[in-house]
Simulated assay, not measured.
Amino acid sequence: MSTRPLSDHWEQGNPYEQYIGRWSRRVAPLFLSWLGQPAGKRWVDVGCGTGALSTAILDHCSPGSVVGIDPSEGFLKLAVQELGIQASFLSGSAAALPLADGAGDVIVSGLVLNFIPDLPAALAEMARVASPGGTIAAYVWDYADKMEVIRHFWDAAVAVDPAAAPLHEGHRFPLCNPAALREAFERAGFTQVNTAPLDVTAVFAGFDDYWRPFLGGQGPAPAYAMSLPDERRAALRAALQARVPSKPDGSISLTARAWAIRGST
């Protein structure tokens, strides 16, 4: 079977929440604790999605202001519904942020950098909208290793169909490791660059609970699953069920690791 094109677009908020949003919401506070920013800062959330990181900023950082930016109208609608007037949300791309120079003190991006077509341009934009001495920080899933929720899926997909190997997110997104992240930030001219792992435990009641979000069609893995004919999808499901470790009660506990990075302008 030949490989199929994947959808890296994220448009529908509710399927995203079931697939990745719930784990994103647990990683975000760990990221903010690691950043350790004082109260009153002006925050800019680049690629804010459904508002997981913006929500955590409001809950944990006593910000002076929060502005979320995302190209997806579906995601922005969900973010506005959840956060209302507590934060401002703007439509825009990471490579052309709709903000003035120096508009933010802390420019952050959660689980987005690897999906940005022109990362150097986006990092340059983040530097532009940061105040002098401001902080630029981000985190991305560790697709090749400890983001087990997704890695097990692709390992099973490749076992069933070796031609799917180029679609494996661990291969597609080489940025998502600390060495590559550091290189990108240093190349962008940021100083005091450092990285850290952020781990949460993803618990599922059973295999169906784990499998169901892959049928939502949002993101590369679900898009691949839903592109398959029924018999191929059934084979993938069986291979994945055999691969994922389960406890005697049928529940599944997996690590969801993100790599965080920070630098200064």
Rank of each mutant, 00 (worst) to 15 (best):
Q192S: 12
R172H: 04
M1D: 09
D145T: 11
P245W: 08
D145P: 06
L32P: 09
R212Q: 15
R232E: 15
H60Q: 15
V66K: 11
F173G: 05
D118T: 10
D105P: 04
D8V: 09
A159N: 07
I107L: 13
A87V: 11
I85Q: 13
L76K: 12
L240I: 04
D199S: 09
D155T: 08
W141D: 01
P29W: 04
A96C: 05
V46T: 00
W154M: 11
P220Y: 07
V106D: 10
L97C: 01
W154R: 06
F214G: 10
F153N: 03
R151V: 03
A156S: 07
L254Y: 13
I85K: 15
R237T: 11
I252T: 06
E186A: 08
S88F: 00
P245S: 09
E169L: 13
L113R: 04
L236W: 06
I150C: 12
L240S: 10
V140A: 02
A188Q: 11
V66I: 14
Y16R: 09
E82C: 13
I57M: 15
P245G: 10
L35W: 14
A234M: 09
G219D: 02
V80C: 07
W154G: 14
I150A: 11
A223E: 08
G92N: 00
S91A: 01
K247T: 06
L53Y: 04
L236V: 10
A234V: 05
G133V: 02
G250E: 02
G68Q: 08
M126Q: 01
A28R: 11
Q81T: 13
L83C: 14
S88C: 03
W34E: 00
D145I: 06
